[in-house]
Simulated assay, not measured.
Amino acid sequence: MIPIGRVAHVTGLSVKAIKYYEERGLVHPIRSGNQYRMYGMEDIRRLSEIKRLRQIGLSLEQIQSGLPVEMLLETRLDEVQSEIEQLHRIEKQIRLMQSGGNDMKVRYETLNEAIPVYGYAGTLEEIPHLWTKLQPNLTTDESYGVCLTQENGYVAGMTDLLAEEDTCRVELTKGNYIVAIVDGGISMISSTYEQLVRVPGVTLRDAVDFERYIHGQGGADDLIEIWMPIE
């Protein structure tokens, strides 16, 4: 058994922190005859573990939850991976803003005739729900997210007919388009739209713009393109 000052030295924690963890019930020192706190190896190892768990971002509430440390670590690892993905998205947005979109690869396409798309219609807020409905019925290698000309309208669909009664038909209008591949997945769609608008010499025409999803093979990620109608 060793006193609190020695515990602070070997764990790297302050005396104040050690007393606080005792108040929270995380360690249980015994009192010597002169009422000094004395710590055994179990408490010392627990304090060292708490310090490391706090360093990786776990809260005291999580540490006190009673869940196994292995489960806490898995949970935190999932959180860190999500944070890393978010930071990567932010990094891409910053680089796009720095370049003014000049490093974005665009091409120009012309649809010589309208393409019918059959799918489920709703609002922009309902996009995840619309795609969830479409996914089990998807019979093509491509699908489309069509932004309707009326405010807040959206269709998730494909070029094959759907049997359900609550479906609709919308046309991808013929004419000229500027097209860009979305680099970074669904979360970067909005940024890609913003960069396309900034391309010099582009004038939008009054027609639907759409997302074209080319579905991956063998588990590969979908390729996403933005098609914006231009003069």
Rank of each mutant, 00 (worst) to 15 (best):
R52W: 08
M71D: 13
M38Q: 14
R37H: 08
H88M: 10
G33L: 05
S65Q: 10
I56H: 00
D78Q: 09
M71H: 11
Q86P: 00
L47Q: 00
R31M: 02
M38H: 11
L60Y: 02
I90N: 09
T75K: 11
Q55W: 05
D43T: 00
R52N: 03
Q98E: 15
G66D: 11
E79A: 06
R54L: 10
G40R: 09
R76F: 07
Q86V: 03
R54W: 04
L60Q: 07
L96W: 15
Q93Y: 12
R31Q: 12
D78L: 08
L60H: 05
K51C: 03
L77F: 05
P68K: 11
L53E: 02
Q35A: 12
L60I: 15
I50G: 08
E49A: 15
L60E: 13
R54F: 00
I56K: 07
E61R: 01
E83N: 09
I94G: 07
S59I: 07
R45M: 13
G40S: 09
E49R: 15
Q86M: 02
V27Q: 08
E74S: 04
I56F: 09
E91M: 01
S82D: 11
S59V: 06
R76S: 10
I50D: 01
R95N: 13
L60C: 10
R31K: 15
I94R: 09
E42W: 05
R37A: 06
L60R: 02
I44E: 08
I50Y: 08
M38F: 09
L60V: 12
Y39N: 06
S65C: 07
I44H: 11
I94D: 13
R95Q: 15
E74I: 05
M71E: 15
R54V: 08
L58A: 01
D43H: 01
G66M: 06
R45T: 03
E79G: 02
L72Y: 00
V27R: 08
R31H: 14
Q98V: 05
I50Q: 08
G66A: 04
S59G: 01
L58Y: 01
L53H: 06
L72D: 02
Q86N: 05
I84H: 04
R52K: 14
R76D: 05
R89Q: 15
V27A: 07
E70W: 05
I63Q: 13
G66W: 01
L47P: 07
